[in-house]
Design a protein around this nucleic acid. Structure first.
Lengths: 138, 138
DNA sequence: AATATATATGCATAATTACGCATGTGAGCT
DNA sequence: AGCTCACATGCGTAATTATGCATATATATT
């Protein structure tokens, strides 16, 4: 598919829409935090982030064991406009706000700006029953 | 897929991107004109227009034998923002401007505001060798 | 070095979507 | 009524994309 259509397509998946929404709200979020916020398997989050990376909408930054994602710098005009459309969507979507709530709770668990220290979080991956369920809230 | 992701997805196809671009430039365009402008089979155009209809981005209006499409009235805020992203994209895309050129030539052929009178145009459908090739230009 | 944690990815499969062809529908013309 | 033109749609198939599971990689930590 051509590049720009792909760009829109990048937002054409519910999970990616949710990811982008969170990323526009916070400066930097690491993968495990996104996993907890969306309650979606880690391999799934990673894959969707990869798609968003390819569209140039987000950038990643490895720090220690973790990979932090954020909205890319130097977005083109139409890309910034797209992001704005996402935020505008926010008002209509309860689920996006729920994501933000879970993300908020999760981000509070950072110690010294570092994410997931001492937290186990494997929602869909492998066996172990997941921790960080205080974040899930329900 | 959920509704809003689908909305982005509506733009996540090159053909639909091209259609939307033309529709944002002109008030009303009928299917056969779009076929000539994009040089894409009629059944294909119809299908993509149907997708755009479902997203609420465009509306149709039957007039005599023809069906005219236009950008929907009463778009929501984020929808208008999306359209703006499309126009902003225009600057980067030679192909969109070529579509517009062909569309412009085609629209000039209207007689009395009525489209495709006496023109035969079956780019991909069935047999007959297409007319309106003065529009294709190449 | 061995182990544990965070993230990515190969592979098989399921689900979704686009496409081409043929045909259906509906409006207008003769 | 029969024909033609504009448009839509059913169906089969090809192409694309998402998902789950397992595993690979890379970076601490002990």
């Amino acid at each position: 598919m051509d590049y720009h259509a792909e760009l829109f397509n990048g937002l054409g998946d519910p999970t990616r829409l949710r990811l982008l929404n969170l990323l526009t709200q916070a400066k930097e979020i690491c993968v495990c935090e996104l996993v907890d916020a969306l309650q979606v398997p880690q391999y799934n989050i990673s894959r969707h982030l990869h798609v968003l990376l390819k569209t140039g909408m987000v950038q990643d930054h490895k720090r220690g064991k973790w990979v932090y994602y954020s909205v890319a710098k130097n977005l083109k005009l139409y890309q910034r406009t797209l992001l704005r459309a996402v935020s505008e969507l926010r008002d209509e979507r309860e689920d996006l706000r729920q994501d933000e709530a879970r993300a908020g709770r999760r981000l509070k668990l950072r110690s010294g700006g570092v994410c997931c220290v001492g937290l186990v979080s494997k929602i869909g991956n492998s066996s172990q029953e997941t921790a960080a369920q205080n974040v899930a809230a329900r």
